[in-house]
Design a protein around this nucleic acid. Structure first.
Length: 278
DNA sequence: CGATCTACCTGATGGC
DNA sequence: TGCCATCAGGTAGATC
């Protein structure tokens, strides 16, 4: 579910809500949320530690601890982090509850149980953990020039949407924002990376940065099923600004003539305008 | 190497 | 109303 803008919204809230807090207890009730280490190891490594900072790399959240470890969280499709008071009723699908010494809790909910969290050392992040060590540049955290983007784009021959959603190329873009970025840049999802003109490369990169930035500004996208909500259970507003995603058979907001088409690409839904995207 | 599927899960939705 | 198929923001691994 959450892509870069949603995870970034959560990161900013975590910065205010949990940085500086010390972990008192950790309760792991879910069977699948901690799978790279035993729940006991996770609990032992986190209890007593103080959270010193919150970083985001692509869709990963990295919480630095004062004991040298990093608490890594990936929400996958349905994971949610929620700020709660100890007395609040525990929602269904709550798998991990972290209680702070100053009171208050951070809870991890995840109906589909694809999400996970684990502790790692900074060393393991840069070398051993494959997905993290091979993660591409985060376009919001580490902006690059459109020229460098062009080099990256031409370094692999693949379809544009596959390139945008490949986390080892650029980190953080998923199914919603890939479609929105491609629409904004006027390019079809199935264009080959090596077929773009210089002007198209520049346009694609500008759209990429702008769409992600705008989506962050509106707190990300929350669809009808409300699978994405922030630390306080609030949804984002960016779905109101979607030009193509989830707008099948609705008129294109740019050309106002053509209806948005839904198709499949790499077994994911893909929305686009046949007139505005070439 | 790239492209395409499948598995991992639960829950919502729509057709009949 | 119920039953069944399909679909969902992600990613890793298998297979061609």
């Amino acid at each position: 579910m959450p892509e870069l803008p949603e995870v970034e919204t959560i990161r900013r809230q975590l910065e205010r809500e949990v940085v500086g807090r010390k972990v008192k207890t950790v309760d792991v009730t879910g069977k699948r949320s901690i799978r790279r280490q035993t729940p006991e190891e996770f609990k032992a490594g986190l209890e007593g530690a103080k959270i010193t900072g919150v970083q985001r790399k692509g869709k990963y959240l990295l919480l630095a601890l004062d004991n040298g470890s990093v608490w890594i969280i990936h929400l996958r499709m349905s994971g949610q982090l929620r700020r709660a008071a100890a007395k609040d009723p525990v929602a269904e699908h709550t798998h991990v509850v972290v209680t702070f010494t100053q009171g208050g809790q951070l809870r991890f909910l995840d109906p589909r149980t694809f999400g996970e969290m684990f502790l790692a050392t900074p060393d393991e992040i840069t070398s051993e953990i494959e997905e993290l060590s091979t993660l591409g540049v985060d376009p919001v955290e580490t902006p690059m020039s459109w020229v460098d983007f062009g080099h990256l784009l031409r370094s692999k021959k693949m379809k544009l949407k596959a390139f945008l959603t490949d986390q080892s190329m650029i980190a953080g873009i998923g199914n919603i924002y890939a479609d929105e970025i491609l629409f904004d840049s006027g390019l079809r999802f199935d264009r080959e990376t090596d077929s773009l003109t210089t002007q198209e490369i520049r346009r694609l990169y500008r759209s990429l940065v702008e769409i992600l930035y705008e989506a962050c500004k509106y707190g990300g996208s929350t669809l009808a099923d409300r699978q994405y909500v922030d630390l306080f259970g609030k949804g984002g507003d960016y779905q109101q600004h979607h030009q193509v995603y989830d707008r099948e058979k609705q008129p294109c907001r740019r050309c106002r003539r053509n209806d948005i088409v839904k198709t499949k690409f790499a077994s994911r839904s893909t929305f686009y305008c046949e007139v505005c995207q070439v």
